[in-house]
């Protein structure tokens, strides 16, 4: 079936097109959609080439910074504002792919891909979506949970982190590049030797990236000691089904999530709060 293409700079039109037709997709860097076309995926019927300066913008906004959905991983790496995301963006793909893969695309990447999204969850990012002729914001986690409503994502808003620091690690089978066995992103704030805030997200582990509330609760309130970390690691599997694929079984992924959370927070212990 021939593919239809619409070029527009009107986000409202793009939002209506994708809301009304499940075969319509807004084109990002092509790393997801072009691949599906090559694979013969008949569900991709209509590509929308949406343009506009806002979509590639990375700029401070009140209370944080905004990254346009069509900013590439390379754009993120070149933007000093997005320093918190440099390590996660650098862990995506290889150089050519990083020049193409977009922030918007990463939100909807096929698991176990979605490393940047994992970090964005730990940073408490919000999805900026088109709403009528304006914009709307909602927690990123809510956008990821509701896969039935098709919204046009214009970008993400990353709030100021205050005293919190992001700790990030990604485990792969092949090096230096590979798909995630597990990706761990933990944003911790500490005061007076105690953890005052913890946001911990996992990618690669259970389909879409998710926040682990049991882990966060176990880490919050006390000092970041080995016992606390061990207790928190035991909460990773709460309420999830770890995914199995060609890279690893769910069992191995969960085991590695525990190990890597412990190793990551073990390094955080020694780092300045």
């Amino acid at each position: 079936m021939p593919i239809e293409i619409t070029r527009t700079d009107d986000p409202g039109l793009a939002a209506r097109l994708i809301a009304n037709d499940r075969g319509a997709y807004v084109m990002g860097g092509g790393t997801g959609l072009m691949r599906r076309i090559h694979e013969g995926d008949q569900a991709v019927r209509h590509l929308i080439l949406l343009s506009g300066p806002r979509l590639r913008q990375i700029a401070p906004e009140r209370g944080g910074f905004f990254i346009g959905a069509q900013a590439s991983m390379a754009d993120v790496l070149a933007a000093p504002e997005a320093r918190a995301l440099h390590q996660p963006a650098a862990s995506v793909g290889a150089p050519a792919l990083r020049n193409m893969a977009t922030v918007g695309g990463n939100l909807f990447a096929r698991p176990p891909y979605g490393d940047l999204t994992t970090a964005l969850l730990a940073l408490d990012a919000e999805a900026v979506t088109a709403s009528g002729s304006g914009e709307d914001r909602r927690p990123l986690a809510l956008l990821l949970e509701d896969r039935t409503t098709r919204r046009l994502v214009l970008g993400v808003f990353v709030p100021d982190q205050g005293g919190a620091r992001l700790h990030y690690t990604k485990m792969t089978r092949s090096h230096p590049r590979g798909a995630s066995i597990v990706t761990v992103a933990a944003s911790l704030a500490r005061s007076g030797g105690r953890v005052t805030m913890a946001r911990v997200a996992f990618g690669g582990l259970a389909g879409a990236p998710f926040r682990a509330s049991g882990v966060e609760r176990a880490l919050t309130g006390g000092p970041l000691g080995s016992e606390t970390i061990a207790t928190a690691a035991e909460r990773i599997g709460d309420g999830i089904t770890p995914m199995s694929d060609a890279l690893a079984s769910g069992w191995y992924r969960l085991e590695m999530a525990k190990i890597h959370l412990r190793r990551l927070l073990g390094t955080a212990q020694g780092s300045p709060s």
Binding site: S174, H175, P176, R177, G178, A179, A246, L247
Partner: peptide, 11 residues
């Protein structure tokens, strides 16, 4: 080629 695992140039 990510899920068909092969050692990379870093391995």
């Amino acid at each position: 080629f990510s899920s068909y695992v092969m050692p990379g140039p870093g391995d």
